[in-house]
Amino acid sequence: MYRFFTVTLITLLTAACTSAPQPPVAGESLPACGSFPNCVNSENGQGSASIAPIAATPTQWQALKDWLANRPDWSVETVQPNFLQAVATTPTMGYKDDVQLRYDASAQQVHVRSSSRLGIGDMGANRARVEQLRNHVSAQPR
């Protein structure tokens, strides 16, 4: 019984491992979340994966990009005028989570996708991360 449980657990954890998502082609939305509850997405999220985009002026968008570039627990992988892709490292266990931000200048909002690379669930870490970003942006001058 113990062996079955161990093999099942290892299989589930391995199956739930993902790699970094590809940046969207210009003009396209962020990639949808997968079938596991370890992702939130303001463009393609459904049900528990859905989250509201972040309201931001162009000045706030630039301030957000600058802030993330200087965070010790974030590694910015791709930065473009209206897109940023980064890896956030969780403080306790050092898990790597992927974050994509796409700025829609006409709507003055940041669409966000935050997903865990490891595990079936995220214990609310991705949603909390987006809310941290939202709080930071709202504290910036418009």
Score class of each variant (00 low, 15 high):
residue 1 M to A: 15
residue 2 Y to D: 14
residue 4 F to H: 11
residue 4 F to G: 04
residue 7 V to P: 05
residue 7 V to E: 13
residue 9 L to W: 08
residue 15 A to E: 12
residue 16 A to P: 00
residue 20 A to K: 11
residue 25 V to S: 13
residue 25 V to D: 12
residue 27 G to I: 06
residue 28 E to W: 09
residue 29 S to E: 14
residue 30 L to Q: 07
residue 34 G to I: 05
residue 35 S to H: 13
residue 35 S to F: 10
residue 36 F to S: 08
residue 37 P to A: 08
residue 37 P to D: 03
residue 39 C to L: 01
residue 40 V to D: 02
residue 42 S to W: 12
residue 44 N to K: 11
residue 46 Q to S: 15
residue 46 Q to A: 14
residue 46 Q to Y: 11
residue 47 G to L: 09
residue 47 G to V: 04
residue 47 G to Y: 05
residue 49 A to C: 00
residue 53 P to H: 03
residue 56 A to L: 09
residue 59 T to W: 01
residue 59 T to G: 14
residue 61 W to T: 02
residue 62 Q to Y: 06
residue 64 L to F: 08
residue 65 K to A: 09
residue 66 D to E: 14
residue 67 W to G: 02
residue 67 W to E: 13
residue 68 L to S: 07
residue 73 D to C: 00
residue 80 Q to W: 07
residue 82 N to S: 14
residue 83 F to G: 12
residue 86 A to S: 13
residue 90 T to A: 01
residue 91 P to Y: 05
residue 93 M to R: 00
residue 94 G to P: 01
residue 96 K to E: 10
residue 101 L to A: 08
residue 103 Y to F: 15
residue 103 Y to P: 08
residue 103 Y to I: 09
residue 109 Q to Y: 10
residue 111 H to P: 08
residue 114 S to F: 00
residue 119 G to M: 07
residue 121 G to I: 08
residue 124 G to R: 11
residue 125 A to C: 01
residue 129 R to L: 09
residue 134 R to V: 11
residue 135 N to R: 14
residue 137 V to M: 09
residue 137 V to C: 13
residue 138 S to N: 02
residue 142 R to E: 08
residue 142 R to A: 15
